[in-house]
Design a protein around this nucleic acid. Sequence first.
DNA 1: GGTCGGATCATCT
DNA 2: GATGATCCGACCG
Length: 201
Amino acid sequence: MGSAPRERLDVDLAGRSVVEAARDLLGCRVESTVDGRRVVGVIVETEAYGGADDPASHAATAVGRTDRNRAMFGPAGRAYVYRSYGVHWCLNVVTGPEGRGEAVLLRGLDPLEGLETMHGRRGRTPLCAGPGRLAQALGVTDALYGHDLAAPPLRLLGGWSVPAERVGVSGRVGVSSASERPHRFYVRGALGVSRPDGWRP
DNA sequence: GGTCGGATCATCT
DNA sequence: GATGATCCGACCG
């Protein structure tokens, strides 16, 4: 793992399959400056949804376009935010060509900066393992629905390349259909990137 | 330290 | 009117 992250996001979100995009987003950073407080984390867990007839996707062909999922059919690199179980917000990155209805759910971050802010929002640890916690730590709500992730207050930035042997693949979590598809990607073990030392909740 | 059920509401049928 | 791309606290062992 290189010591310095790539500054700019150099993952092709529009031109690849959502599964490839989910893999490539591992190691990239997410920066939130919501409420003027800067928070950064490294993506360590993702799930791919959508594409050719994925019944577990909010944009499944059986569902079609709705008010809720319209961002998934928009341009790549935007945020698709939805409410889960009436309680949590979840953050997705739209991928693929416009009209396809593909998105990558961000399930886990490795906290890098602004841990105090994350803890202040969460009130407890873990800070951003799991999609609901991740959105809460970043201050993500439906106010960011459709937001362009190239611009503040929520940006995707470059990161570290994750070697293939560090990438784990599994079925998706918490879905009742097509859960066996190997569309979940995660980084095995510690990432080994620099983090603030000595921080405690 | 592991399992179980309630919370809570936007969205779709 | 049913259903979750979840989380957390309570309870059990």
